[in-house]
Amino acid sequence: MTSVPVKEIALGVESFGDEDAPLVLLAGGTTMLSWPDALCARLAAGGRRVVRYDLRDSGESTTADPEAPAYTLRDLAADAAGLVDALGGGPAHLAGIGVGGMVAQVAALDHPGAFCALTLAGTRPVAPGPPDDDLPDHDGATMGRLFARPMPDWTDREAVADFVAAGAEILGDDPVAARATAARIWDRTPGTAAPVQTANQLGMVFARLDCAPRWRERLPAIEVPTLVVHGRRNRFFPVGNGEALAREIPGARLLVLDEAATAIPDTAADEVADAMLTLGRP
């Protein structure tokens, strides 16, 4: 892992595969570890240069004030395009998961020349907050259980890992895998202050971003081959959100993972990688 300067900030990155191969850029949601190792390795084995990266205020990327971010969603989209330039591998296949999928949508719309393909995993076509009337919202009972829990002691690595694992179980994800990832994220987090930890572990900084203007109405302007990946058991962004993306982006392919929730499980890495590697082929 290292960091790459992009304009006035630095973005934490990790690379897999041949540096001369076509570039696949994986936007974190919010950290790069939202993208499982198994999927990165499978894409690299398929002849791609894979670079996963941390969004601002997470991981090895520039951290300022997660409680009052001085940047917008469109700045995060510009970061993705700037990273392609810095890496020298454009145009790139851009993939975003969760909130990173929102970044990826806006990046593809605002910087079309930087990207040749798009993968959107476990995300939706509108910003954090109440969704449009035709989109399913977070499952109420699940959110009630998730947010009723007291926050952990953010200075205690094991307590944080346990907290995240319990949340993953509520969401329908693998708690063992989530616990291991949370411990890795804790190790990479620059400090134990609660706002910084919640930005890394829970992505709470994203709810404080200026995400205007809306971009959903612009989705038909996306011209690159697009794959939408969504877990059928996703209770945070129910599958109807992925179905809407696939309808509104011309020619998009929808891949529903029947046994997945919010995370891409290692058991689905081959299926997702194969779909990404063949994106755009007849």
Rank of each mutant, 00 (worst) to 15 (best):
S3K: 13
V4G: 00
E8H: 15
E14W: 08
E14D: 14
D18N: 06
D20I: 08
P22A: 11
P22Q: 02
L23F: 01
V24G: 00
L25K: 03
L26G: 01
A27W: 08
A27Q: 14
G29A: 09
T31D: 11
L33N: 06
P36W: 00
A44C: 08
G47F: 06
G47M: 06
R48M: 09
R49I: 07
L55S: 13
S58P: 04
E60F: 15
S61A: 07
T62Q: 03
T62A: 06
E67F: 08
P69H: 06
D75H: 04
A78D: 12
A80K: 08
A81E: 05
V84H: 00
D85Y: 02
G88K: 04
G89K: 07
G89H: 00
G89L: 10
G89I: 06
P91H: 01
P91T: 10
L94W: 04
V99D: 14
A104Q: 04
A108E: 05
A108S: 09
D110S: 10
D110Y: 03
P112V: 08
G113E: 12
F115T: 05
C116Y: 03
L118V: 09
L120N: 00
G122P: 05
A127V: 12
A127S: 13
P128D: 04
P128V: 05
G129L: 04
G129S: 08
P130D: 11
D132Y: 13
D133E: 15
L135F: 12
L135D: 03
H138R: 14
D139E: 13
D139T: 13
A141N: 14
T142H: 07
L146T: 11
F147E: 15
D153Q: 01
D153N: 05
T155N: 13
T155A: 15
T155G: 12
F163K: 00
A166I: 07
A166W: 12
A168N: 05
A168R: 04
E169Q: 13
L171V: 15
L171P: 03
P175S: 00
A178M: 10
R179V: 03
A182W: 02
I185Q: 04
P190N: 06
G191V: 02
T192F: 00
T192G: 13
A194Q: 11
Q197R: 15
T198R: 15
A199G: 12
G203D: 06
M204P: 10
V205W: 06
A207D: 15
A212S: 14
A212E: 14
A212L: 10
P213M: 05
P213I: 07
R216A: 10
A221D: 15
E223H: 09
P225V: 04
P225I: 02
P225T: 04
L227A: 02
V228A: 02
V229T: 03
V229N: 01
R233H: 13
P238D: 05
G242E: 06
E243S: 01
R253I: 13
R253W: 09
L254Q: 02
L254C: 02
V256I: 11
V256K: 11
L257A: 02
E259D: 15
A263T: 15
A263L: 12
D266E: 09
T267L: 08
E271Y: 07
V272S: 02
D274N: 08
T278Q: 11
T278C: 07
